[in-house]
Amino acid sequence: MIRSFPYRLYLVTDEAACLGRDFFWVVEEAIKGGVDVIQLREKNLNEEAFYLKAKSLKVICQKYNVPLIINDSVDVAKAVGADGIHVGQSDMSISTVINRVGDMIPVGLSLDYLEELYAEDANDAWYYGVSPIFSTPTKSDTRAVWGLEGLQALRKLTEKKLVAIGNVKVENAAEIIAAGADCLAVVSAICSADDPAHAAKALKKEIDRGLKKS
């Protein structure tokens, strides 16, 4: 089990955002460009298709020694030997996931509101996905956004690693890191880029710039 979370650039997959290009090519190019952790999130796949996709993606991640996180599905995560599971506030509770996997697989947790930090099992999270920092079309069910001020407030209240997601792009990457994020999670900024490797490199450069400002 991975106890630390040293990662800086986190790719959340979206087949549709790949714009018809080969999904696995996009992910591999992103890794070559500097993505250092992958979350497989494909809400529209049935469990068998999700498992098969995860199995193929695990091979690529192992090739580059990049951890694979599975969104929500405990069964798929266990079946492919995933390096982590991520759950949202409307998914299976983190305590339920931990009860099913024990110490085998660490679990990341989305925080949509500051109050969720104080939930009974929130402190068991591997990291917090701070969602969304800014409004984004890839998460249409959002009721509120954190903004930079909300992120700064959260940073003062926890030592857990904070993964910021929601309309993260090159233009705002440095300021999000400077506001307290440890890691940036992106979807379309890489998946839809003409050159996913170049997009990842550009984001990583901005992350480094933000760290110098923080």
Rank of each mutant, 00 (worst) to 15 (best):
V76N: 05
I98S: 00
W25Q: 13
Y118T: 05
E115L: 08
L45Q: 06
V76A: 04
Y113G: 00
V101K: 01
M92K: 15
T96V: 07
V97N: 01
H86N: 07
V145Y: 13
L40F: 08
N99M: 10
A178N: 07
V27E: 03
L162A: 06
Y7Q: 05
M104C: 09
F134M: 01
Y10Q: 04
C18D: 11
V35G: 02
A173C: 04
L68K: 03
S56A: 14
S56L: 12
Y113T: 10
L157C: 02
L19P: 00
S131M: 13
L184I: 10
D208N: 15
G34N: 08
N46Y: 03
N44V: 11
S110F: 06
L19M: 13
G33V: 03
Y128V: 03
Q89E: 12
V145S: 13
F23L: 09
V163H: 05
A193G: 05
V37N: 01
V59S: 12
A17Q: 12
I165K: 04
Y118G: 01
I98K: 13
A193E: 05
S90W: 14
A144F: 12
K161L: 00
L162D: 02
K32N: 07
V35S: 05
V170F: 14
P106E: 05
A197N: 04
R21W: 05
T138F: 03
A179I: 07
S135E: 14
C191V: 09
I2Y: 15
Q89C: 03
T96E: 13
E206K: 15
P6C: 10
I176F: 12
R41N: 01
A164Y: 09
N172H: 08
P137H: 11
N65M: 10
K161M: 02
G150Y: 12
S214M: 09
T13Y: 09
A173L: 02
W146K: 04
I98Y: 03
V186P: 08
A82M: 02
S192R: 09
A49R: 15
Q62G: 14
R209E: 11
Y7F: 14
S56M: 11
L19N: 15
G20M: 08
K212E: 13
F24Q: 02
I85K: 00
H86Y: 07
V186Q: 05
A199Y: 15
E48L: 10
E206F: 10
K78I: 08
K78S: 10
K169Q: 08
